[in-house]
Structures are given as C-alpha cells and as structure tokens.
Computed example of a mutant assay.
Amino acid sequence: MLAFLIRRTGQSAIVVLLMATIVFFGVNVVGDPVHMLVSPDADQAEIERVIRQFGLDRPVIEQYGLFLKGAIQGDLGTSFIFGQPAVQLILQRFPATLELAVSALVIALVFGIPLGVYAGIRPDTRSARAIMAASIFGFSLPTFWVGIMLIMFFSVQLQWLPSTGRGDVGSFLGIESSLFTLDGLRHIILPASNLALLKMSMIIRLTRAGAREVMQQDYIKFARAKGLSFGRIVRVHLLKNIMIPVVTVLGLEFGSLIAFSVVTESIYAWPGMGKLLIDSVLQLDRPVIVAYLMIVVFLFVLINLIVDVIYSALDPRVSLTGAKS
C-alpha cells in the first residue's frame, strides 16, 4: 500500500506540473487584461503603472517562474478585479459548488442504479425499454435547455420551486450548507436535478450493461440453485459485482460535476466556482482563471487516486502493489 501511494503521488505531481504549465501559458496568451483594469480615459502613464503593478511588464518565462514558486507555497496570485488572493476567492465559492455536485450525484445514484438494475434483469419488458429510451433523451438534451425548461415549468407555471440563488444557509457540526435548511433544499432541487440528468442516464446504461452480464454468470445460477431469494441474489451477488465499474466511472464523473457545473450555476445564478469562473473570463481576471483550473486539476488527480484505492477494496483480485496507473 505504501509503495503504491508513493508511486501514485509522484505520478500525480508530474501531472499537476504539466497541467500547471499548460494552464499558465494557455491563459496568458489570451487577451490583454490591462484594458479591463483601467479607465477608458486613462493616459499612457496610468496604463504603464497598472502593467508594472501586476507584473505584466516582466518576460513570460519570469512570470511563469514566479507562478510556480507561488503555487508551491499555495499562492496562485491576486485577483485583478477583487484584489484578494485567487485561491481564497475560489475556496469561498467551493462549498456551494461541492454541495451542488454531491446533491446531483446522490440524485443520479438513487434513481440511476435501481432503474439500471431493473432494465438489466427485465430487459424485455416495456418499462425497461421506456427506461432506456429515457436515458437516451438524458444524453441528448442540452443542459442549458433542460435547465430553462425546468425553470419555466416548476418556477414560472407551477411556482413550486425558486429558480435562482442558494437560499438560506444552515450550520451543523460547524459545517455551513444550504442542505441544512428547508429554504436551501427548495433552492437546490432544480439545479441539482438539471446537473444530475446526464450522470443519471450514464449510470442507468452502465448499470444495465453490468446487470445483464452478471445475470449470465455461473455463480448467479448456483445462487438460484441453492434457493436464495431473488432479492438477496440482487443485493449480495449482483450489486457488489456491477458496482466495481460504476465506482470507477463515478469517481471521475464526480470530478466533472464539480468542474463542469458552469452552465448550471449560470442558469440558476448559483454562487459557486463556475459562476465565478464565467465572471472572471468576461473580465480577463487571469489569476482567478488559473486558480480555478489548477484546483480542478488537483481535484481530478486526488479523486483518481481515491478511486484506485476503492477499486482495489471492491475487487480483491486487484493488488495495489502491482496496480498499473
């Protein structure tokens, strides 16, 4: 276990370094933030002062070296617009994005796994065909369109749920979240459902494929021959085996829920990292953009490592000491 963690940590460090290089140079060749930071009436002296203030007069390689030095110390620069450390701005918005991603993943799991299992063990029924047809719609419909339709139906016509904002935030065991208040739960239903739709469709199809394959295995037939109830066969033998690929995929998909919630957060004015990213892109706030991308890279690397460990726990045939990255 220790050798595996050391090897994977080294590999992760290399990945983070390469992504830091790509992110830095990719962001710094786009646009000129100076004209976003000064008044249109500013003279040349004022423009040069702003350039020197933010270190934009230095060679790109020198800026890159300072960026790496600061990144090692946890400093990814100061926001051009807000005047605060970029990492601090991102982390202030992170809890809102995290609770949205967790809620979406829970919705996708609660509905996706039972529907996928049913479609796998009863593939020829009309309801199973309807489930698979619905999953195709979940893959096909654009997220922004679904989000708008949910607002039109549940917020405008029925007036059941609010369409924007995070709602009231409660505290439990020192953790603040909108999930701890009724108003917060009402606010999160629509954005979480919108974000969960694509993942739910993927889980349904993945679970169905796994269930159909597992139901043909000899150990399922032996379990039936021993007289085990069908419910016990599904819970003990089927679910345990189909969860191996599901956990592997969901680990990375959870990272994508955090990273790619930009559209959903924009539609519902959810005060998370995605909304901050959109505002920073529009204002060419480079430090915030770079900090966001680096935090997302770190999350993906960390989640991938955790998934590998969980995968080995679910499948005893996998040895951590001999696992391939």
Rank of each mutant, 00 (worst) to 15 (best):
residue 218 D to V: 07
residue 69 K to P: 00
residue 75 D to E: 15
residue 258 I to A: 06
residue 248 T to Y: 01
residue 292 Y to P: 01
residue 278 I to P: 00
residue 17 L to Q: 06
residue 196 A to R: 08
residue 144 F to K: 03
residue 60 V to K: 09
residue 122 R to W: 01
residue 260 F to C: 05
residue 284 L to S: 09
residue 293 L to D: 02
residue 38 V to S: 04
residue 136 I to Q: 13
residue 22 I to V: 15
residue 10 G to Q: 09
residue 315 D to I: 11
residue 134 A to V: 14
residue 240 K to D: 04
residue 82 F to C: 00
residue 205 R to W: 09
residue 239 L to A: 11
residue 196 A to C: 10
residue 147 G to F: 01
residue 30 V to G: 00
residue 223 A to H: 05
residue 79 S to P: 01
residue 72 I to L: 15
residue 83 G to N: 07
residue 106 V to N: 04
residue 243 M to H: 02
residue 201 S to E: 07
residue 71 A to D: 11
residue 248 T to K: 04
residue 199 K to F: 11
residue 117 V to T: 15
residue 53 Q to Y: 13
residue 112 G to D: 07
residue 102 V to F: 11
residue 32 D to E: 14
residue 96 A to T: 05
residue 222 F to C: 06
residue 313 A to G: 00
residue 30 V to K: 02
residue 46 E to Y: 08
residue 204 I to W: 00
residue 101 A to T: 08
residue 271 P to E: 09
residue 95 P to A: 10
residue 72 I to M: 14
residue 67 F to Y: 15
residue 104 A to I: 08
residue 198 L to W: 13
residue 19 M to H: 00
residue 105 L to C: 06
residue 183 D to Y: 01
residue 114 P to M: 13
residue 237 H to Q: 12
residue 86 A to I: 00
residue 43 D to K: 09
residue 271 P to H: 08
residue 270 W to I: 12
residue 287 P to L: 00
residue 238 L to H: 04
residue 120 G to K: 06
residue 48 E to K: 12
residue 256 S to C: 08
residue 283 Q to K: 15
residue 270 W to M: 11
residue 277 L to N: 06
residue 90 I to M: 13
residue 39 S to F: 04
residue 215 M to P: 00
residue 53 Q to T: 13
residue 315 D to F: 06
residue 102 V to Y: 03
residue 221 K to R: 15
residue 118 Y to V: 13
